[in-house]
């Protein structure tokens, strides 16, 4: 029995530059664990501890995704071991293909209590992969999970919505996408990072995963939607004068 966490190795938003046309320049962005996923790993760690099981990580991408940095970045966050699924179908990945590759990779793990995921990925932000994966595995899929507890042989899952709090009881495996504040992920220290280099990682290639045969939604175009430009203005002078200028700017912008 194990708990699995799926995560994305994506760009670090801290390094992204927004061009004047609203598109992102990622040419200088370093790769990092997608910023919604450390909370998933932390939630998975907590659940694995409660169940007394291993926590296994899984990420998927084209062949180039596997690197010592990626392995250490993931394993230093509390995973016991790691699967890296590489597949040529992920060169132009969309959520359906990604979920198919992840499902194939999870087939290598004999018994899984739950798959934990982040709310969405930092780049596409669609939040589709966990629920598509749940469908492929024929398991329940729950998004917006704010807490997970073990109760006997079952899992209790908490979800908080705009006007409700739900408690759900799961008697079998499920895919759970956790909210950004479900737990507070710890910051890996030097000991965690050094230990990460000694933990096992297994690369599953296309030959082991098999072909991806699902129908695909192919992206044929993408353009940024118009975002109102935020203008920064520094106002000079004494406080009263600065306030007068602020009022004037607001009025000129038609905001008052």
């Amino acid at each position: 029995m194990s708990v699995a966490v799926i995560f994305k190795w994506a760009y670090s938003p801290a390094d992204a530059q927004v061009r004047s046309d609203g598109t992102l320049d990622l040419s200088r962005a370093k790769a990092a664990i997608s910023e919604y996923d450390p909370v998933a790993i932390a939630a998975g760690r907590q659940l694995a501890n409660d169940l007394g099981t291993d926590l296994v990580g899984l990420t998927a991408g084209p062949a180039g995704i596997d690197s010592p940095l990626m392995r250490k970045a993931a394993l230093s966050r509390g995973l016991d071991r790691l699967f890296v699924a590489t597949h040529s179908a992920l060169e132009q990945a969309n959520s359906t293909v990604t979920a198919n590759v992840l499902a194939a990779a999870l087939g290598r793990e004999p018994e899984i209590a739950a798959v934990i995921a982040g709310a969405e990925s930092v780049d596409d932000a669609a939040g589709q992969v966990p629920l598509t994966l749940a469908g492929l595995l024929d398991w329940p899929g729950l998004a917006g999970v704010s807490g997970i507890a073990v109760d006997g042989g079952a899992l209790e899952v908490y979800r908080t919505g705009a006007n409700r709090q739900e408690t759900l009881r799961l008697t079998g495996p499920a895919v759970l996408a956790v909210t950004t504040n479900a737990v507070s992920p710890p910051v890996p220290g030097m000991k965690d990072i050094l230990a990460a280099g000694k933990k096992p990682a297994t690369v599953l290639d296309e030959a082991e995963l098999g072909p991806v045969t699902c129908a695909q939604a192919v992206e044929v175009g993408r353009r940024p939607t118009a975002v109102p430009r935020r203008e920064g203005r520094v106002l000079d002078g004494e406080l009263a004068e600065a306030v007068r200028q602020a009022v004037s700017v607001i009025q000129e912008a038609g905001l008052a």
């Binding site: 250490k72 910051v187 220290g189």
Partner: peptide, 18 residues
């Protein structure tokens, strides 16, 4: 090194929080 890179990332996270 990978270790320095990751340690600096961790430190950045901590600085942002604390």
């Amino acid at each position: 090194t990978d270790e320095q890179e990751l340690l600096l990332q961790s430190l950045d996270d901590l600085l942002e929080r604390e």
